[in-house]
Design a protein around this nucleic acid. Structure first.
Lengths: 149, 149
DNA sequence: GTTGAAAGACTTTAATT
DNA sequence: AATTAAAGTCTTTCAAC
């Protein structure tokens, strides 16, 4: 699965999870090795799938989404599949997991304001009951997994 | 809050949310403008806070985390603050939101295997009751917000 | 697996439209 | 606000250790 991360790999991952646009030479300087070396390491980390990709993170608030909600969906009998399809097709849902238990899906939904909530959930009323919680703050904004071997 | 995104901004954001390491010249070619122009746009998008940062995404599975759990915490009276502190200090919790309702915190936790669950929740038993759901799949892995103005 | 050096490609600045 | 051109810098390849 993963051939143990040495100190260099760990340093590279730490830097790239902070700033994915760091150049090879800057990364090399911080790591105390040559540019071709870090480039090689990163390519290997990508090839093994440990680095899944490099992405820009956008601010929902700056985009006009004033609210986030956590919505739990409890599917009606026989509706699990169509519910999943609807969730995937709803682009205001920016994250969703299928989980054990009665509330089969847990989703994160973006709202311009609270007035939008009813309308956004309406398409799901035929397929599931929902429970909604409004996000008041995010004590742990998405952060990288601890690096273990 | 945000001075409307024109077609160029939108294209740039779309590309950078797919590959944050794209070079200016490649981005410029895809957008049909010059390199200094895209560089300028991206700088402005960063300055306005719309682009929060560029990060490498790591694979929890490739790091040896075979399971993910969604844990809901219902704090005991007077324990909200210490609970929040413990959550923040737990690096296996890679995301946590404080939400409305009885289950004041909703967290995403990484587990090497199911045997770890009890031990990881044990430190919280003095401060909250918990409800745990195991992630079976992720129909919507974290994706960018829809771009609106 | 890592390095150093050279060629080539990219980025950045500044002047211009 | 975007472009061009030039200077500087970074990246990449490859031979060597």
């Amino acid at each position: 699965m993963n051939d143990t991360l040495d100190a260099l790999d760990q340093l590279i991952l730490k830097e790239l999870t902070r700033d994915a646009r760091l150049g090879w030479s800057e990364l090399a300087a911080r790591a105390g090795v040559s540019a071709p070396t870090v480039r090689d390491r990163v390519r290997r980390l990508e090839d093994t799938g440990l680095i899944q990709g490099f992405v820009a993170e956008l601010s929902p608030r700056a985009l006009g989404y004033g609210l986030e909600a956590i919505v739990r969906f409890k599917p009606f009998p026989g509706k699990v599949h169509i519910l999943a399809d609807r969730i995937i097709a709803t682009d205001r849902i920016v994250q969703c997991d299928k989980v054990t238990g009665e509330d089969a899906f847990v989703a994160r939904m973006l709202l311009r304001d609270i007035a939008e909530l009813d309308g956004l959930l309406e398409p799901f009323t035929a397929h599931a009951s929902t429970q909604t919680a409004i996000v008041k703050s995010s004590p742990v904004p998405m952060r990288p997994p601890p690096l273990i071997e």
